[in-house]
Design a protein around this nucleic acid. Structure first.
Lengths: 255, 255
DNA sequence: TCGCCAAACTTGTACATACATGTACTCATC
DNA sequence: GATGAGTACATGTATGTACAAGTTTGGCGA
């Protein structure tokens, strides 16, 4: 239940267009109303209209250019920051019932590599969670979460079988403002295989995520492994628009 | 070799800031010059400065907010549209020597599933390419490309062992303006395994890409499979900024 | 009928201004 | 020294204007 506050004009316009596209009032290939028309429709000036268009453009929903009318592209999926960070939230939006079976929650001193990935000194206390996540009661993903104690203490005080850790952190006033994800593939190890009910070595889609506060403090370092036939990532990019993704080469043979 | 044309102001500013961050003149955590300072530095108005900032924000390089100074985030990688669509271009930027060993190039009528993915009628002619790609002479990725004849004819007339098909299409006047990628994991089949010199079933990072013209015509449908210890995807997202990615669930057991 | 050109309209870029809204600092006061 | 009000300054939002640079349209002339 997000606060409703009075919506900004550009947000109003973006929401209208996005909804109209999703509901099919504008089909792929159709022309959107011109900026001049939209300013009249919303009794606004060109600024907010262009800001809304810019948003939809980076979401990959529309394409525009000098002289050309703005057209609707394929009806591609995009998700907001909140939808994509929380498995529970994501399931709700897809009309799926999320589930979780916590394997263990620990508090212990960080060994070297974990400390490095959390950007804390060796031996500092770390809270770790290991859960199996389910979609409609079907095993889908194994989740390994690690928190420095400052944020992990909220997790220790939380029943991890009851729902969304992300939502709990928000409620506790933790300001999650940015995430960085690295995606690759990895074979299921014995733990993964047992929980997901597949053979050892089954290819899994691995998403390693690090979440930060606005001030830059690291909140979480996680490792999620999805069954690839249950979930996949989609990304849109448009020439001339900024991109938030990169394909990176790993010279060193890490794992 | 892209045309240099006179750069726009906002592009000038964005380029300056991006370079300064990459080269470490602004460290993560540092404050960027205020908008007012930048307008003076570049003898510009606030519009272009804000447009540049907006670009860097969606690239995940900076964070800003009402009342707060704009700060540099971690020095995260991001790549432009051109860098990420062309394996050759990508390698060059990373100081890697790209290579390719073409297995075959064919022209044939599309069978049902391929026709569907190319959005053309069953039986329409399709040009397909199957290549092994190398980084510094080391097998890294297997590439399967499919083009409708309209665009594929340029590929047929091209020596696919000589370099970048993408660059060739550009040179032939094909306007590639948008791509959509789906990322998941899959085990190496016999062809993959033989070329990549790994056992059958080895987990691979699969990137299925579809490329479109500005008008919406489908140019290419491809399937790239990377050795996950050679390459991975990275994505940044910031709360409140538009996102161009989505995690999608596959209810149906496709492959 | 065909081809060319000018006009009208589209989106992109830039400038100037105003006010909203949040942060951070100064400084007087207790 | 701690506290709190006030102030200066930061970015966010909105308006209005102007021009640049493409595309589309329609009419005119050959």
């Amino acid at each position: 239940m997000t606060q409703q506050r009075t919506r900004q004009q550009y947000d109003e316009i973006a929401h209208y267009l996005r909804t109209a596209i999703r509901e099919g009032h504008f089909q792929p290939g159709d022309e959107l109303p011109s900026e001049a028309e939209l300013t009249r429709t919303f009794t606004s000036s060109r600024g907010p209209v262009r800001q809304a268009m810019s948003t939809l453009r980076t979401e990959g929903l529309i394409s525009s250019g000098r002289g050309r009318r703005t057209v609707v592209l394929d009806n591609v999926p995009t998700q907001s920051f909140d939808d994509i960070i929380s498995f529970s939230q994501w399931c709700h939006n897809a009309d799926i019932v999320p589930g979780q079976r916590t394997q263990w929650v620990t508090r212990r001193p960080a060994e070297k590599s974990l400390a490095a990935s959390l950007q804390i000194p060796d031996g500092d206390p770390v809270v770790s969670v290991f859960r199996l996540r389910l979609m409609d009661d079907v095993p889908t993903m194994v989740e390994r979460l690690n928190y420095p104690l400052e944020f992990g203490r909220h997790v220790l005080a939380f029943d991890t079988d009851s729902g969304s850790i992300y939502q709990e952190l928000i409620d506790q006033g933790v300001d999650i403002s940015r995430t960085s994800r690295t995606i690759d593939a990895i074979g299921a190890n014995e733990d993964d295989a047992a929980l997901l009910e597949v053979p050892v070595g089954t290819p899994l889609l691995r998403v390693r995520r690090r979440a930060f506060t606005g001030a830059g403090a690291l909140i979480e370092s996680s490792d999620d492994r999805y069954l690839p036939w249950k979930a996949s990532f989609t990304m849109n990019s448009t020439r001339g628009n900024p991109s938030s993704m990169a394909l990176t080469s790993n010279h060193l043979g890490e794992n």
